[in-house]
Write a protein that binds this DNA or RNA. Sequence first.
DNA 1: TCTCCACCTTACTTTTAGGTAAGTACCATA
DNA 2: TATGGTACTTACCTAAAAGTAAGGTGGAGA
Lengths: 121, 121
Amino acid sequence: MTPYSAATGVENVLKILEGRWKLIILFHLFGGKTLRFSDLERAIPAISQKMLIQQLRQMEADGIVRRIVHHQVPPKVEYCLTDWGQALCPALDALLKWAALKDRDLSGMEFPADETIGGTV
Amino acid sequence: MTPYSAATGVENVLKILEGRWKLIILFHLFGGKTLRFSDLERAIPAISQKMLIQQLRQMEADGIVRRIVHHQVPPKVEYCLTDWGQALCPALDALLKWAALKDRDLSGMEFPADETIGGTV
DNA sequence: TCTCCACCTTACTTTTAGGTAAGTACCATA
DNA sequence: TATGGTACTTACCTAAAAGTAAGGTGGAGA
């Protein structure tokens, strides 16, 4: 595993998470919640409809969000996370735990070399 | 912990990692390596000097890279990761492991609800 | 017939990240 | 006096992301 391939792997993950609104949408859907388009609009007042749909569509294309259309008038469309999307939770938790280490004493701790990155995969 | 605060926490981490070149620099420095500016230039041929210094300075400001100046002519400046920077390794590994789950059977797995995000911190 | 709701779509503008190319400082050596 | 090696700095340009505002669809109820 070269620095390049490891970086590329992480970059591909970050691409899924990047975007001004993706994380906030994600955290609204964590825990198996199912929300309508209008629920998300209300939950995130600052987002525009264009941005909301754009981010949702990208997350759907990436496979972390499932879109459920009920053919009715007026329309009803629901969004929830896929199993894979739910599985993001512990990985994001690892990032938060890392952030919380800042300014703590890390002396004496051992961290793996980059050769081990993704080694368990 | 609200969806908003959890998302903000993760966003702050992503800000540190975002940028066209940060991860590749990071992976070159993982494992306790210390490299000169010119070493990094050689290791990452596609990067311009402006971009290299810009990303290094941001990473230094974020506290994940340490800059060591040797006052000589010609100049010699070395870069390595801080302890905190090294500690990123397992968190990035978690992201790679998650990516590897795609298209696998996740049925029967239990994932924590968002209320638990960062709960151990 | 008119309005309304929910879920988008489109056109346009602004902001920001990134890229290119050139220049600077320092002194050592030829 | 001129050249070169190292680590930057500056000015300018381009492309992608994000924001704003308006329009569209398709029936249900007034």
